[in-house]
Each structure stands twice: as C-alpha cells, then as structure tokens.
Lab assay of single mutants.
Amino acid sequence: YKELDVHLRRMESGFGFRILGGDEPGQPILIGAVIAMGSADRDGRLHPGDELVYVDGIPVAGKTHRYVIDLMHHAARNGQVNLTVRRK
C-alpha cells in the first residue's frame, strides 16, 4: 500500500468527490466518483477506489458512512480538509 496526504480547499460545489462504503461494520471507506473540474479533480491525487484512512487527522477505518459524512460536513464549514488515503 502507498499512503498519500491530500489537502483540498472547498469550492462552491464542495470538495469534488463522493464517498462509498462504511455501510457494514468494518467495511472500508472508499473514494467513489471524482467530479470533473472539482477540487479533488484539479488537485489530481485522489482516485476512485482509494481507501480513506484519515479525515483531518481522525481515523475513519471501520467507521460508519454517516460518521465520515459528518466529518466532511465539518471540514466543509472550515473550507478545507486534510485527507490521508491508501492505494494498492
């Protein structure tokens, strides 16, 4: 696995990616679609299928989808987010 730290600034449309997973206990949280011309797309480092490991330094492995969405909403209010993702 390769770990990447990604800092994104929120645009009008948000951070520019969707979150998948976390529906079953222990299921990984994954990056879903990366939205064209969004913040994540312009940054270029997030890829669909990347596993989300940390959101603003908070571990999200094994957490629920709702928990991660709530963290992302909090980050959106701050206008930026630091993510750590893991890729095979």
Rank of each mutant, 00 (worst) to 15 (best):
D70Q: 11
A33Q: 13
L52T: 00
V68L: 05
Y54R: 14
Y1V: 06
A75C: 08
Y67K: 12
P28A: 08
H47N: 11
I29K: 06
L30V: 14
Y54H: 12
L83P: 00
I69H: 12
I69Y: 09
R42S: 08
Q27W: 06
A36N: 11
L8F: 03
V81R: 00
P59L: 14
E51D: 02
I35S: 14
N82C: 10
H73V: 09
P25K: 08
A76R: 11
L46H: 00
M37V: 05
K2I: 13
A76C: 09
P59A: 14
V6K: 02
V60T: 10
T84F: 05
I35M: 12
G22Q: 08
V53G: 02
V6Q: 01
M11T: 15
S39W: 02
I58N: 12
K63T: 12
P28S: 07
E24K: 14
A61D: 09
L8Q: 01
D41K: 05
I19C: 06
R10W: 13
S13Y: 08
Y67Q: 11
H73K: 14
E51C: 04
V85S: 00
F17G: 00
D50C: 00
G38I: 00
H7Q: 13
I58D: 07
Y54Q: 14
D5M: 09
D41F: 09
L52N: 02
E3I: 15
L8P: 03
Y54S: 15
G21S: 06
H7A: 11
G38E: 06
I19E: 02
D50N: 02
P48V: 14
L71F: 03
A61P: 05
K63V: 07
D41Q: 11
D5Y: 11
E51M: 07
R66L: 10
G21H: 07
D43Y: 04
H74V: 15
G44S: 06
P25N: 06
Y54G: 13
I29Q: 04
H74M: 13
V55I: 14
Y54I: 14
D70H: 10
P28G: 05
L83V: 09
I58T: 12
Q27P: 03
R86L: 06
D50S: 00
P59H: 14
I19Y: 01
E51I: 07
D50I: 01
A75P: 04
V34C: 07
R10I: 05
L52V: 10
K2V: 07
A76Y: 14
H65L: 11
Y67V: 10
H65D: 08
R66G: 12
R45N: 11
R10M: 09
A40M: 04
D43V: 04
L8R: 02
N82G: 09
Q27Y: 07
R87V: 03
I35L: 13
L8V: 06
P25I: 09
D70P: 06
T84K: 15
G57T: 07
A36M: 06
D56M: 02
I35Y: 13
N78E: 12
M11V: 09
V6H: 01
L8S: 02
I19G: 01
V85K: 03
P59V: 09
R9P: 10
M11A: 14
K63D: 02
L52Q: 02
F17N: 01
A33Y: 05
G79Y: 06
V60D: 02
A75T: 04
R9M: 12
V55L: 11
V53T: 12
A33R: 12
L83F: 03
D50Y: 01
G38K: 04
D41V: 04
L71H: 05
V60Q: 00
G49C: 03
E12I: 05
R18Y: 07
A36I: 04
L71R: 08
L30R: 13
H65K: 15
G14E: 05
A36E: 13
L20G: 09
R66N: 12
L52G: 02
Y54L: 13
L71T: 04
V6A: 03
G26L: 04
I58E: 11
P25M: 08
F15P: 01
M11K: 11
N82I: 08
M11P: 04
H74S: 13
M72G: 00
H74E: 15
A36L: 06
A40D: 04
V60F: 00
K88P: 15
L20A: 14
G22M: 04
G62Y: 06
G16A: 00
T84Q: 08
Y54F: 12
V60M: 10
M72H: 01
Q80S: 13
L71D: 01
L20D: 15
A40I: 04
P28V: 05
A61T: 12
E24A: 12
D41T: 04
K63E: 09
I58M: 12
D50P: 00
I69L: 14
V81M: 08
E12K: 12
I69P: 01
L20N: 14
L8W: 02
D56E: 07
G21D: 06
Q80D: 10
A61R: 14
P48T: 13
G62A: 06
L83G: 01
R77L: 12
I31P: 00
Q27A: 13
E51P: 00
H65Q: 13
D56I: 00
H73S: 13
L20Y: 12
P59N: 14
L30A: 07
F15I: 00
L30W: 11
D41G: 09
G26I: 03
H47A: 14
A33D: 15
Y1N: 06
I31D: 02
E51V: 06
G79M: 07
Y67T: 10
A76W: 12
M37Q: 14
L52S: 01
L46A: 01
F17H: 01
H7W: 10
D5I: 11
E24V: 12
Y1S: 05
D43Q: 05
P28K: 12
K88G: 15
I35A: 14
E24C: 10
L4F: 15
H47V: 13
A76E: 15
G26N: 11
G62C: 07
Y1H: 06
D56Y: 03
K88H: 05
G22S: 10
Y54T: 14
L46I: 10
A36H: 12
Q27R: 10
M72S: 00
P59T: 10
D5H: 15
V85N: 02
I31R: 01
G38P: 05
A75R: 05
Y67D: 13
L20W: 09
I69D: 15
R45Y: 04
R18P: 02
R77G: 12
L46E: 01
Q27L: 08
G79K: 08
M11N: 15
A40H: 04
V81S: 00
R86I: 05
V55F: 07
S39F: 03
R10C: 13
G44N: 06
P48N: 07
R18L: 06
A76G: 11
A33V: 06
A76P: 03
Y1M: 07
R86Y: 08
A36P: 15
P59Q: 13
R42G: 05
Q27F: 07
D50G: 02
M37I: 04
R42W: 05
G22V: 07
H65V: 09
M11Q: 15
K63W: 05
K2A: 03
L46N: 02
G44P: 04
V34A: 03
I19T: 07
V85I: 13
G38T: 05
I19M: 07
V60A: 04
D23Q: 12
M11F: 12
G62R: 08
Y67E: 12
L20P: 02
H73C: 10
M11R: 13
N78T: 10
D41I: 04
G62P: 01
T64F: 04
R9K: 15
K88R: 09
V55M: 09
